[in-house]
Design a protein around this nucleic acid. Structure first.
Lengths: 155, 155
DNA sequence: TTATTAAACGATAATTATTCTCCTTTGTCA
DNA sequence: TGACAAAGGAGAATAATTATCGTTTAATAA
C-alpha cells in the first residue's frame, strides 16, 4: 500500500474512533496500522508479533480485545467467516454456500443457481486455481423473521 | 436426502474404506451416515451429539479422529477453509480471495479479475444475500515451486 | 494545565476446541 | 478361531480465545 493510502486509512480510523467514542490509544493505532500494512491477512498472533516490535509491553489480550472492537465497529473484516469450529460436509459434488452471518447456518447453493464463476484473466502471481467456492453472505429467513419480530414489538 | 441416495453414498463409503485399508468399524459407519443425513454442515461437536444417541459410549475423541481420517481420504470436505485461527483484513472495499490450500496463504483477488457473480434466480428459502465472497482455492506459486523441487530431487 | 473518571491496558486465570497418550477392544486376514 | 495391527475410550495436554481484576491512560470539564 502506498503511504498516501495508508495516511488516508489511518485518518479514517481516527475519525471512526471519535464517532464511536473509542479512545484513541497508542496501542490501537499501532495495531490498526500494522494490520493495514500487512498483505497476508494475518492472525491475531501474527499481528501481535509485529506490534510487539513497537510496543514490547503490549499483551496478546489487548490485541484480541481491540481486533474484536474493530470488527464490531466495521473497521475490519474477518476473512475466515466460519472460524471457531470446523464445519463439515459429505456432499462432494461441486456446489456453493449460503451463509447466515447472524446464526452462522450454512446452506447449499447449487451451481445452477449462479452465473458461472470464471477468471477474466490469468490469476496473479503464478497461482494455480483448482476450484471456486462462492459464499453468498447474508441473513437467513429465520433470522430475518426474528429481527422483524423484535423490531415490531419495540415500536 | 432420499434413502436411495444415502444407500449409494454409504456403499461408496465402505468401498473407499476397503480401498484405503481403513477398518469398517461400527463407529465409522454411524459417524459417516449421521453426517450424510445432516443438512446443516455440522461441527464435530454437533455430529458427536447425534451419534451418541446410537452409540452412547462413543467418545468425542473418536469422532474427531475419524472426521480427520475421512478428510484425508477425501470422503469429506471442510466447509470452513480457514478454521483454526481468525484471519483479518483492513481492506473493506469489495474483493475476493486466492487461498492456498497448502500453506493457507490468502491473497486478494480484485473483482475486475472475475466475471461478475450473480444469482440466476431468487435465493432459496427466503435468504437475503448481502454480498458474495469468492474463494479461488488452489496452490500458490511458492508451494508449487516447493513441490516441483521435491519431485525433481526424488527422481 | 490539571483533576476526575470512565475506558483501556497488562498479567494472568479460565474456557473452548482440538489433539495426543496410553491402555483396552475389535476388525481383518491367515 | 487366533494373532496382530488398527481403532476405540478415557482423560491429559495444547492452542486459540475470552474473561477477570487491579493499574494506567485518554478524554473532558473546570
Amino acid at each position: 500500500m502506498e503511504p498516501r493510502e495508508l495516511d488516508r486509512r489511518m485518518e479514517l480510523f481516527r475519525q471512526r474512533c471519535r464517532e464511536k467514542g473509542l479512545a484513541l490509544t497508542h496501542q490501537r493505532q499501532v495495531i490498526y496500522e500494522a494490520l493495514s500494512k500487512m498483505e497476508h491477512h494475518p492472525s491475531p498472533e501474527a499481528i501481535y508479533e509485529v506490534v510487539r516490535k513497537q510496543i514490547p509491553s503490549i499483551s496478546l489480550g489487548t490485541v484480541y480485545k481491540n481486533l474484536k472492537t474493530f470488527l464490531d465497529t466495521g473497521l475490519l473484516r474477518e476473512v475466515s467467516v466460519h472460524h471457531g469450529t470446523v464445519r463439515l460436509e459429505a456432499n462432494m459434488s461441486p456446489h456453493h454456500h449460503l451463509v447466515c452471518t447472524q446464526c452462522k447456518a450454512i446452506m447449499d447453493l447449487e451451481p445452477e443457481d449462479l452465473e458461472p464463476v470464471r477468471l477474466k484473466r490469468k490469476p496473479p502471481k503464478g497461482f494455480r486455481v483448482e476450484r471456486f467456492s462462492v459464499e453468498a453472505l447474508g441473513i437467513c429467513a429465520a433470522c430475518l423473521a426474528k429481527s422483524e419480530k423484535a423490531r415490531r414489538s419495540k415500536s
